[in-house]
Design a protein around this nucleic acid. Structure first.
Lengths: 203, 203
DNA sequence: CTCCGGTGGAACATCTCTGTTCCACTAGGA
DNA sequence: TCCTAGTGGAACAGAGATGTTCCACCGGAG
């Protein structure tokens, strides 16, 4: 399959690349991501309509609804893992790494927002496992920070990770609903996470 | 209706109060609360079964599913408002009031957890309005703290409230799923909220 | 031009949930 | 004892969604 695609591409002159037609699969997934973000109960018919394709076509690519959700979940997890990789969790002091996590993950809001929608997605074992592994990665980061004395040790790492990730979800929501300014959200979230609400002058 | 109930009660001797039979309505609401907390899509049939009553009876009390959800939402908001009242938001420094909020609200997890389940509940205008007013109350508290110099002013109040409430939701989840120890959760959450993750020794 | 893969549309069976109606039963009060 | 309100069960219609099948169409490759 890959070979065939490659050979076809090679036949074309590289110069006037005719705006490679986006695979239908991707169009459907984008539409689903965007639709499910605001309406977790969106039916396959609605998703198909939003993607501009027939319901039959959706069904040909994703035989069941679970297949579609699963593909979306895998995609989301991939992006998340890429973001964590880009944050270089093992480099430098843990708090700085956490700050990079915010910078890398927060912009993904549009593509991950749909996750908070339905429980259907979290019912997928792959999703639970994948998320668990992400949380475990962050756990390890926080624990490293605690060992190295850069993160307070009097609060369990799991609770820190839980509060941290939840705060990020909340800020996503706030951005979506217009309660939080997108541009400065990352910086403020980092400030809060590192220093809490106590003003710097009072410590 | 109220009068009739009162007069009946008055006829009984107060001494051997025969364990007043719990109104069916309350039984149903409790069952629904508990069931929806883990399965937002629970059908009325499942809820009725969990409550130990017939589906017909549920339907007699709550003509439509929306009526039931609405009643649950109102109940949850009432409890939340009571908790905020008990936290005496206007007394003393704002950070201490916030800390009391955690102490009062966190134990409500069992009764409020079902809120994170379905979007159905948040679609109710009463729920959105009610929650909005709760958030506004917290906003005001944070702003007071900022005016009085007890809460940092370089982060918008809405973002603080957003991150704070989200962290609380997250800790609820963590408790439910066994990732977070219930007994110490409130204290740790307060510690994090006030001081962030930076160890006290490093400031 | 012809063929053919991919597509869209229509129709269908099936399932599940909701909301409604009707009837039988039972416990407690008059 | 009889009556009645409240209840539970069964059955029904309707709505919506899913998954399947079949067929017509179109555009590009040969």
């Amino acid at each position: 399959m890959n070979a065939r695609r490659t050979s076809r591409a090679d036949l074309r002159p590289v110069t006037d690349a005719p705006a490679a037609p986006e695979p239908v699969r991707d169009v459907v997934m984008r539409a689903a991501t965007s639709l499910l973000a605001t309406d977790s109960g969106a039916s396959l018919a609605e998703i198909a309509a939003a993607a501009g394709v027939g319901r039959t076509t959706v069904h040909r690519i994703f035989p069941t609804r679970a297949d579609l959700l699963s593909a979306l979940a895998m995609d989301a997890l991939d992006r998340l893992r890429e973001a964590l990789a880009a944050a270089r969790l093992d480099d430098g002091p843990a708090p700085e790494a956490l700050s990079r996590v915010v910078d890398e993950v927060l912009p993904l809001a549009d593509e991950l927002r749909f996750l908070d929608a339905g429980p259907d997605i979290w019912d997928l074992p792959q999703m639970r496992d994948g998320w668990w592994s992400v949380a475990a990665t962050l756990d390890a980061l926080v624990q490293r920070g605690q060992r190295e004395g850069d993160i307070r040790g009097d609060v369990p790492a799991e609770l820190i990770v839980e509060a941290f990730t939840s705060a990020m979800w909340g800020v996503w929501d706030g951005i979506r609903d217009g309660r939080v300014a997108p541009a400065t959200a990352a910086r403020h979230l980092v400030t809060l996470t590192l220093g809490g609400i106590t003003p710097p002058t009072k410590r």
